[in-house]
Amino acid sequence: MRLLDYFKSTRNNNSASTAKDRLQVIIAHERQALRGPDYLPALRRDILEVIKRYIPVSEKQLELHVEQEAGYEVLELNVTLPDEEKIAS
Protein backbone atom coordinates (compact mmCIF):
# COMPACT_ATOMS: atom_id res chain seq x y z
CA MET A 1 0.00 0.00 0.00
CA ARG A 2 2.84 2.36 0.83
CA LEU A 3 4.16 1.91 -2.69
CA LEU A 4 0.76 2.85 -4.09
CA ASP A 5 0.55 5.91 -1.82
CA TYR A 6 3.90 7.06 -3.08
CA PHE A 7 2.72 7.14 -6.66
CA LYS A 8 -0.63 8.61 -5.69
CA SER A 9 1.02 11.46 -3.84
CA THR A 10 2.93 12.55 -6.93
CA ARG A 11 -0.36 13.08 -8.71
CA ASN A 12 -1.21 16.74 -8.68
CA ASN A 13 -4.11 17.12 -6.32
CA ASN A 14 -4.04 20.86 -5.96
CA SER A 15 -6.62 22.04 -3.49
CA ALA A 16 -3.94 24.29 -1.96
CA SER A 17 -3.82 26.47 -5.04
CA THR A 18 -7.62 26.74 -4.98
CA ALA A 19 -7.29 27.85 -1.35
CA LYS A 20 -4.76 30.50 -2.29
CA ASP A 21 -6.90 31.88 -5.12
CA ARG A 22 -10.01 32.04 -2.95
CA LEU A 23 -8.11 33.74 -0.14
CA GLN A 24 -6.59 36.36 -2.42
CA VAL A 25 -9.99 37.31 -3.76
CA ILE A 26 -11.82 37.46 -0.44
CA ILE A 27 -9.04 39.24 1.43
CA ALA A 28 -8.64 41.91 -1.26
CA HIS A 29 -12.40 42.45 -1.10
CA GLU A 30 -12.54 42.60 2.70
CA ARG A 31 -9.54 44.90 2.99
CA GLN A 32 -11.28 47.39 0.77
CA ALA A 33 -14.53 47.12 2.70
CA LEU A 34 -13.06 47.12 6.19
CA ARG A 35 -9.97 49.25 6.04
CA GLY A 36 -11.73 52.38 4.82
CA PRO A 37 -12.66 55.11 7.31
CA ASP A 38 -15.35 54.29 9.90
CA TYR A 39 -17.75 56.86 8.46
CA LEU A 40 -17.85 55.20 5.03
CA PRO A 41 -21.08 53.20 5.49
CA ALA A 42 -22.92 56.25 6.89
CA LEU A 43 -21.61 58.50 4.11
CA ARG A 44 -22.74 55.94 1.57
CA ARG A 45 -26.23 55.84 3.10
CA ASP A 46 -26.55 59.64 3.09
CA ILE A 47 -25.35 60.02 -0.49
CA LEU A 48 -27.77 57.32 -1.63
CA GLU A 49 -30.62 59.16 0.07
CA VAL A 50 -29.80 62.44 -1.68
CA ILE A 51 -29.52 60.79 -5.10
CA LYS A 52 -32.81 58.98 -4.52
CA ARG A 53 -34.62 62.31 -4.20
CA TYR A 54 -33.91 62.91 -7.88
CA ILE A 55 -33.26 59.53 -9.49
CA PRO A 56 -34.62 56.13 -8.52
CA VAL A 57 -31.45 54.18 -7.78
CA SER A 58 -31.04 51.13 -5.61
CA GLU A 59 -28.40 50.26 -3.05
CA LYS A 60 -26.60 48.04 -5.56
CA GLN A 61 -26.19 50.83 -8.12
CA LEU A 62 -24.02 52.91 -5.83
CA GLU A 63 -20.35 52.09 -5.36
CA LEU A 64 -18.19 54.00 -2.94
CA HIS A 65 -14.48 53.36 -2.39
CA VAL A 66 -11.57 55.07 -0.76
CA GLU A 67 -8.33 54.39 -2.58
CA GLN A 68 -4.73 55.31 -1.90
CA GLU A 69 -2.99 56.97 -4.82
CA ALA A 70 0.50 58.38 -4.54
CA GLY A 71 0.05 59.72 -1.03
CA TYR A 72 -3.51 60.96 -1.62
CA GLU A 73 -6.74 59.37 -0.53
CA VAL A 74 -9.23 59.37 -3.35
CA LEU A 75 -12.93 58.99 -2.68
CA GLU A 76 -14.45 57.29 -5.69
CA LEU A 77 -18.19 57.37 -6.27
CA ASN A 78 -19.90 55.39 -9.02
CA VAL A 79 -23.63 55.56 -9.67
CA THR A 80 -25.19 53.39 -12.34
CA LEU A 81 -28.18 55.39 -13.63
CA PRO A 82 -31.28 53.44 -14.56
CA ASP A 83 -32.63 53.28 -18.15
CA GLU A 84 -34.72 56.26 -19.28
CA GLU A 85 -37.83 54.11 -19.71
CA LYS A 86 -37.73 52.99 -16.12
CA ILE A 87 -37.60 56.58 -14.92
CA ALA A 88 -40.56 57.47 -17.07
CA SER A 89 -42.66 54.57 -15.86
Binding site: S9, N12, N13, N14, S15, A16, S17, K20
Partner: peptide, 11 residues
Protein backbone atom coordinates in the same frame (compact mmCIF):
# COMPACT_ATOMS: atom_id res chain seq x y z
CA UNK B 1 2.23 21.03 1.20
CA UNK B 2 4.24 18.91 -1.25
CA UNK B 3 1.14 16.87 -2.02
CA UNK B 4 -0.68 20.07 -2.92
CA UNK B 5 -3.32 19.89 -0.22
CA UNK B 6 -1.99 22.45 2.25
CA UNK B 7 -1.20 26.14 1.72
CA UNK B 8 2.54 26.71 1.53
CA UNK B 9 4.26 29.16 3.86
CA UNK B 10 5.30 31.37 0.93
CA UNK B 11 1.69 31.64 -0.27
Amino acid sequence: VDNGDMLAVDD
